[in-house]
């Protein structure tokens, strides 16, 4: 392990680090928005839209991100739709992540017990009030574990962006390895960089899960 090589590569990695963080953030926020909307449409059984979104969730969940990206980045231009690599990356990540998040939220909403729904109904709530005051708050805290798993998953999925040459962390490392043929050092920095991002995220999400657990399960 040669530390001077590592030192020289740091500016490159910092750039990649920032980009990974940024793409993850946009991807996660976008996925949560798409996921909530999708699962609400499914929960309220909005006709037509629900069927369309069901298909979306299944297609997005059962195909690899890499192929989704290849499609956006290489095949779409043939149809006359050209986008930058980063746009493709973000669209791909939100396409995938939205479906995962939707599954998580739907799981949470369905996890709200029938007893709780009965109690709300017995108090005279209509469907909207039931959703707003019973299903949503409880379902969201029930879906936190799935949300946490998805957030970690999506951050790691940004590594696949390297295949369409977005200069995030993994792509940065691969580029450097290609140029200088020093794999040990660069892979070491790469792993450390992911650890720096993911360890705090994991700790934070564990804390969040503990915080909401009571709210959801303690009757």
């Amino acid at each position: 392990m040669d530390w001077t090589i590592i030192q020289q590569s740091l500016p490159n990695f910092v750039q990649g680090f920032k980009l990974t963080l940024w793409l993850s953030l946009v991807g996660i926020v976008g996925s949560i928005i798409v996921g909530i909307i999708t699962s609400l449409v499914q929960y309220f059984r909005v006709p037509v839209l629900k069927q369309i979104l069901n298909v979306y969730v299944e297609v997005a969940r059962n195909t690899p991100l890499l192929i989704q990206l290849f499609f956006l980045y290489y095949a779409f231009p043939v149809m006359g739709i050209k986008m930058t690599a980063e746009t493709c990356g973000i669209i791909g990540l939100i396409f995938l992540g939205g479906a995962y998040m939707a599954e998580g939220f739907t799981g949470g909403f369905n996890g709200v017990s029938q007893n709780q729904l009965d109690a709300g109904e017995a108090l005279g709530m209509n469907q909207f009030q039931l959703a707003r005051y019973v299903v949503l708050p409880q379902g969201l805290s029930l879906s936190v574990p799935a949300l946490a798993a998805n957030i970690i998953f999506l951050i790691k999925e940004t590594s696949i962006f390297s295949v369409i040459a977005i200069p995030e962390l993994t792509n940065t490392a691969l580029d450097l390895i290609g140029m200088y043929y020093r794999s040990n050092e660069y892979l070491f920095v790469l792993v450390v960089a992911y650890a720096i991002i993911l360890i705090p995220v994991i700790l934070l999400l564990d804390w969040l899960e503990r915080r909401v657990r009571y709210g959801a399960f303690g009757n």
């Binding site: 109690a119 019973v134 959801a216 009757n219």
Partner: peptide
């Protein structure tokens, strides 16, 4: 809809309490 209105005049208490935990 009708039940939803009537339930405002008919209180019900269950075996499992079912307070809202949040």
């Amino acid at each position: 809809k009708e039940w939803q209105k009537l339930r405002q005049q008919i209180g019900m208490v269950f075996q499992s309490y079912d307070l809202f935990p949040n």
